[in-house]
Nucleic acid binder design. Structure first.
Length: 641
DNA sequence: AAAAAAG
């Protein structure tokens, strides 16, 4: 790990920072007059800033010296003379965290410490688990080698058999959050399957009839009982049906498709991972961001452990040569982001004729304007079996109607639509606050919020890459140990940032929407929408980074009437749908924002139900009760029309 | 108009 970071000393020079110094000051001045609305309320301020920063020193000095993903190392240790101890100011975050930072200092920061806390199913990679990726996958010299030998040999060693990793790696491969979470809650979630002849759901993993190895991996991953998306998804996939599934990440959807796919591959004995000049994977999995596909790959590697099935991950920002060598070692399950995937397919390293499963994670994103052409290119690549001859599986938490219609181009006509509760996010476990701000007050308000969060992990979402840099630098300057992730950062910086955030070394992560979807990070207590997104589904995904799996989380969003008014009505609907209090001023803004629903500037309509029921594709519909009454969950049955 | 994804 350290190896390849050291030679790259990621010095981030932020000219923005210096240039804007003066404007911060003026912004700060303006902030003094900010009076509390109901959210900020009347309670008293924190003033624990001191303990906050000293806690960092105690906690992390070694780690910090080891290289920081952001320039936080110098930022929060050295300069930053401007730590204001502003008090008299209360916010939604400071209820219970006053002295947490020191008290829990050692808790989050240690590497290789995988399982703790209480998380089920998909939430099992702790800091240690994620670290595991770097340490195992890359540390066999491969990452380093891949940096150094990029132009080197084009063929790897001729391995005909890829042995399973030695036992000592097992622990980190299977690192997961301790189970023991309250799964019972899932039994109350409504599930809705529509389409013809859905197979019967399973109630236990035993019913899935997985082989011994898979069962062992399932158990070692801390799985006890299937979640709803697994109960329904597994038999659907075993039955060979195409699937469009609405379920929040974290509800176990990755396992829901990985387990039956892996089992099927083994049943049919097709998978024998071995070196070859051309690899013919049976499974292709795509996701919209590199970090997300990497996360999915780690799941696949875990479940495939000890089997002859070899998963491989490919994405941009890393050396092509390394990627190709990894693929050629043997590749049954190819996980990738679209660009790099098409790249290696185009180079002829990967043949598609054996593809039996095509999985689209965050499917609505994969089919939106940005990705749709690439996805079409993928399914039209030479050798790719047509949709009738492969199984196509789509997963997301949101499905705008137009995307559902588009999706039918990729799915068999009789695909099944599975809606698991809490579709569309706005899970009631997340406390949602909306704060009215002006663009000039945001920065100081953010600082005040973060002062109160202690060691809690907080994701701060901004709209642009530039402002991600800007805000992260600002926070570092203010001695908040912050890192940042966005598409203009080096891939290794992105992964380091995410790693530092996962371990808690940097409890604050400033992110663009690159981090909005799918990322499963332990103990993210808070999400702050520094900038509200343009679309409501993006909001839903962002706040879904917290409050997962029965845990509680808090989301605070800065609402600037000058720019966010178009979102007001949608926001009100999401809030009330999740049984959250709607500020009266927001209702007024929403009411007066006539003309558009704000929901869909481009005609997108958020839908959590099968559009075929709405009259678009009547051909497949069985007689169904009204969508509202059958739709799953406590907050996804809004009529968004 | 922005973010993401190939280099």
């Amino acid at each position: 790990m350290e190896d390849w970071e050291d030679d790259q000393s990621p010095v981030v020079t932020n000219t923005t920072f210096d240039n804007k110094e003066s404007s911060w000051k003026s912004a700060g001045d303006g902030f003094g007059s900010q009076d509390g609305d109901n959210v900020w309320g009347s309670r008293k301020g924190s003033g624990d800033f001191k303990s906050f920063s000293s806690g960092v020193d105690e906690n992390g000095n070694k780690e910090v010296d080891g290289g920081n993903s952001w320039n936080g190392g110098d930022c929060f240790r050295g300069r930053g003379s401007r730590g204001r101890g502003r008090g008299g100011f209360r916010n939604p975050f400071n209820s219970d965290s006053q002295s947490d930072f020191v008290g829990r200092g050692g808790r989050g920061g240690r590497r290789g410490e995988g399982g703790r806390g209480t998380f089920p199913q998909e939430r099992r990679r702790g800091g240690g688990g994620y670290r595991g990726q770097d340490e195992e996958v890359f540390s066999k010299g491969s990452q380093k080698e891949h940096e150094e030998k990029e132009e080197g040999e084009t063929t790897g060693p001729k391995v005909s058999y890829v042995p399973p990793p030695p036992p000592e790696e097992e622990n980190s491969i299977f690192a997961h959050y301790e189970t023991g979470i309250n799964f019972e809650k899932y039994d109350d979630i409504l599930v809705d399957v529509s389409g013809s002849n859905p197979p019967k759901a399973i109630m236990t993993f035993e019913e899935a009839q997985l082989c011994e190895t898979l069962n062992r991996n399932v158990a070692k991953s801390g799985y006890v009982k299937p979640t709803p998306v697994q109960k329904h998804g597994i038999p659907i996939i075993f039955a060979g049906r195409d699937l469009m599934a609405c379920a929040q990440t974290g509800s176990g959807k990755t396992a829901a498709f990985l387990l039956p796919i892996l089992q099927q591959l083994m049943n049919d004995g097709v998978a024998t991972s071995k070196f070859s000049e051309v690899q013919e994977p049976e499974v292709i999995i795509v996701a919209p961001t590199r970090e997300l596909i990497s996360q999915i790959y780690l799941e696949a590697r875990k479940f495939a452990y000890g089997t002859c099935v070899r998963p491989v991950v490919v994405y941009g920002g890393t050396s092509t040569g390394f990627t190709i060598r990894e693929v050629l070692k043997g590749c049954n399950v190819l996980c990738g982001t679209p660009g790099r995937l098409l790249d290696i397919i185009g180079r002829g390293e990967v043949g598609l004729s054996k593809v039996r499963y095509l999985v689209l994670d965050e499917a609505d994103r994969m089919l939106d304007m940005g990705f749709e052409p690439t996805m079409r290119k993928l399914v039209n690549s030479p050798g790719m079996p047509p949709k009738e001859e492969r199984q196509t599986l789509m997963f997301s938490a949101t499905y705008p109607e137009d995307i559902q219609r588009l999706a039918s181009d990729f799915l068999k006509v009789d695909y099944l639509f599975l809606a698991v509760g809490v579709v569309g996010g706005a899970c009631s476990d997340i406390e949602q606050n909306i704060i009215q701000v002006t663009r000039y007050s945001k920065r100081e308000q953010l600082l005040e919020l973060l002062k109160a969060t202690g060691t809690e992990r907080t994701m701060v979402f901004v709209e642009t890459k530039r402002s991600a840099d800007f805000i992260a630098t600002f926070l570092c300057q203010e001695k908040v140990p912050t890192t940042s992730i966005h598409g203009d950062r080096e891939q290794r910086e992105r992964e380091k940032a995410l790693g530092d955030f996962r371990t808690g070394q940097c409890p604050v992560l400033v992110a663009t929407s690159v981090a909005a979807r799918g990322l499963d990070i332990e103990q993210v207590q808070n999400v702050i929408n520094f900038d509200l997104p343009k679309y409501i589904d993006e909001y839903v995904h962002r706040i879904g980074r917290t409050g997962r799996c029965g845990n509680t989380g808090r989301a605070v969003s800065f609402f600037d009437p000058e720019s966010d008014t178009p979102l007001a009505r949608a926001l009100v609907k999401v809030l009330s749908g999740a049984k959250q209090e709607v500020p009266s001023w927001l209702e007024e803004v929403a009411y007066s924002a006539h003309g558009t629903t704000g929901f869909s500037p481009h005609g997108k309509v958020f839908a959590s139900t099968d559009t075929r029921r709405g009259g678009f594709f009547q051909k497949n519909s069985e007689p169904q009760p009204a969508a509202q009454s059958t739709s799953a969950g406590d907050d996804d049955d809004e009529d968004w029309e």
